[in-house]
């Protein structure tokens, strides 16, 4: 327990942790402010103005189409079927397309939860990596192990302290985030339709976001611990993004691999956050009945994504512990 408090203190005392979290909060603030400024409430005046604008555009389009048809008929070339020309319909000029964007809490907040989770996950990765990486490269880890010669206990306690702090930060920021966007919805959109079921699904999504954040923290921690340097975790992260994601994506696209998104991490994160992702095989021929085009699809569920996440985590954290047990500390 004493080791645990010491490690929590060490983590929160670090300027790196503090500055990084401040940066994250500023970034989140900027996003929230941006959402506030670009969205507007649909007051009756706004709706009326949009309706008027839609009507006006529709009238103009009708007039213009008429003029074009006249010109076509006047030329009267053979094979030119002027009756086939486009005539605008009312549906093509809906009022809502002429309204400024509005923030619908029920429809739009899910994306904001994912945004929060993604930003916090990146921060968690870096903080986790530097927490143990800086200890290794500064020699602090060796000192600590002289004090507490149980290597696995020390590493596990450090990891536990990291995860606890990350949980606290994520829960706090999620609550604030929800509050801020409830406010944005009230002022610049609508808060309608928030049944208890809707709230529950938002809460579950935030929980899944928390899992992503913790997983990212543990991954950064594990990689930096294996490499005994913060830079190793960073290198692996950049390597994975550049080589595996961008490179692999290109290669797979050239090879016309079926469902190539399946091999890319963001797809799985989306599947985890949104409960499922549907991939479409655009290269396949259409097989729909009666002229409709239905290409084969593949659905990735959050269960599958969860299994993958656990596997990667177990591999990295397991390896970190195994190397710590086995390798000399010099």
């Amino acid at each position: 327990m004493s080791l645990y408090t010491a490690e929590t203190r060490r983590l929160t005392k670090r300027r790196f942790t503090r500055f990084f979290l401040i940066g994250v909060v500023l970034l989140l603030g900027a996003i929230a402010a941006g959402m506030f400024l670009t969205n507007h409430k649909n007051t009756p005046e706004v709706v009326a103005a949009a309706q008027a604008k839609a009507d006006r555009e529709f009238q103009q389009a009708v007039v213009q189409a008429e003029a074009e048809r006249k010109a076509c008929e006047a030329q009267a070339q053979p094979g030119n079927d002027c009756s086939q020309m486009w005539t605008p319909t009312r549906e093509e000029f809906q009022a809502q397309w002429y309204m400024p964007p509005t923030f619908n809490f029920r429809k739009n907040f899910g994306d904001m939860v994912t945004t929060l989770a993604a930003i916090l996950a990146m921060a968690a990765f870096v903080i986790g990596a530097s927490f143990v990486g800086a200890e290794w490269s500064s020699g602090g880890m060796m000192n600590l192990l002289l004090w507490r010669p149980q290597r696995l206990t020390v590493l596990n306690t450090k990891l536990a302290a990291l995860l606890a702090v990350l949980t606290a930060v994520t829960v706090l920021l999620s609550a604030v985030w929800t509050g801020v966007f409830a406010l944005v919805a009230n002022l610049r959109g609508t808060f309608g339709g928030m049944t208890s079921g809707a709230w529950q699904s938002i809460l579950l999504m935030e929980l899944r976001g928390l899992v992503i954040v913790l997983a990212a923290g543990a991954l950064g921690f594990g990689l930096a611990s294996i490499g005994r340097h913060t830079a190793v975790a960073m290198g692996v992260a950049i390597g994975v993004v550049v080589v595996l994601q961008a490179g692999l994506g290109t290669v797979l696209a050239m090879a016309q691999v079926k469902y190539l998104e399946m091999y890319l991490a963001p797809t799985w994160i989306a599947a985890w956050m949104n409960k499922s992702v549907e991939l479409v095989d655009y290269n396949a021929p259409c097989v729909g009945a009666g002229g409709t085009c239905e290409q084969p699809t593949l659905t990735l569920t959050w269960g599958m994504a969860g299994v993958g996440l656990v596997a990667v985590l177990a591999l990295v954290v397991g390896t970190a512990m195994w190397t710590l047990r086995k390798r000399d500390i010099t």
Partner: peptide, 19 residues
């Protein structure tokens, strides 16, 4: 031995004492 450079001596020792 090397210590984490951004902590003061007192912080370093009190963290060790806690641990």
């Amino acid at each position: 031995p090397q210590f984490f450079g951004n902590f003061s001596a007192r912080d370093t020792l009190s963290l060790l004492a806690d641990a």
